[in-house]
Design a protein around this nucleic acid. Sequence first.
DNA 1: GTGAAGATTAACT
DNA 2: GTTAATCTTCACA
Length: 200
Amino acid sequence: MKLERSFYMRDALTVSRELVGKVLVHETSDGITKGRIVEIEAYKGDIDKAAHSYGRKRTERTEIQFGPGGYAYIYFIYGMHFCMNVVTGAKNSPEAILLRALEPLDGIALMEERRKTGRKSSLCNGPGKLCRAMGIDKSCYGLDLCGNRLYVEDDGWEAGPGKVMTTKRINIDYAEEAVDFPWRFILADSPYLSKRLPKL
DNA sequence: GTGAAGATTAACT
DNA sequence: GTTAATCTTCACA
């Protein structure tokens, strides 16, 4: 079943923990693609130097994060990649969750066509890659995840005990003390992670 | 209007 | 491990 608004209205860290193992669904004119969420990172604008909305900085780009949870925050990075976030928290609480890796479930042929690669395991194992495989671009910015085009569903699958782990985030070395926040959530035994499990 | 930097990826040494 | 590709967004004039 599709996740409801109330699921997203909670704290980003709480939502993150429960979002691992859920299924991202994108319905397009080319077909439907689905992928299980195996790696995500939480960003909290009020205290997190790594967040675009750090210091409650409100710009045209981060505007959607200040609304209620349950909306898509898409941004373009390094001139060639899109990244998708799920906005969480209540209104005026700039929090979001970056989707870093998915396990392809449905529409895999369509993903391969978009990605031009034959290896299923590398189809969605990175923020930029999963967006391309899922057909997500700027036109998805601000979409309501409680709508019927781009949303997250719970298919009843559950991670085994201790399988959801937290680690430090990736590629935010400029964020000073925030680099040590354990806000990356992963499915420990998934072969679809963007990087190998760091040593603990 | 202009310039610098980036929540990445793929290719190369 | 290092680096180029490539362009939106943001800060400042």
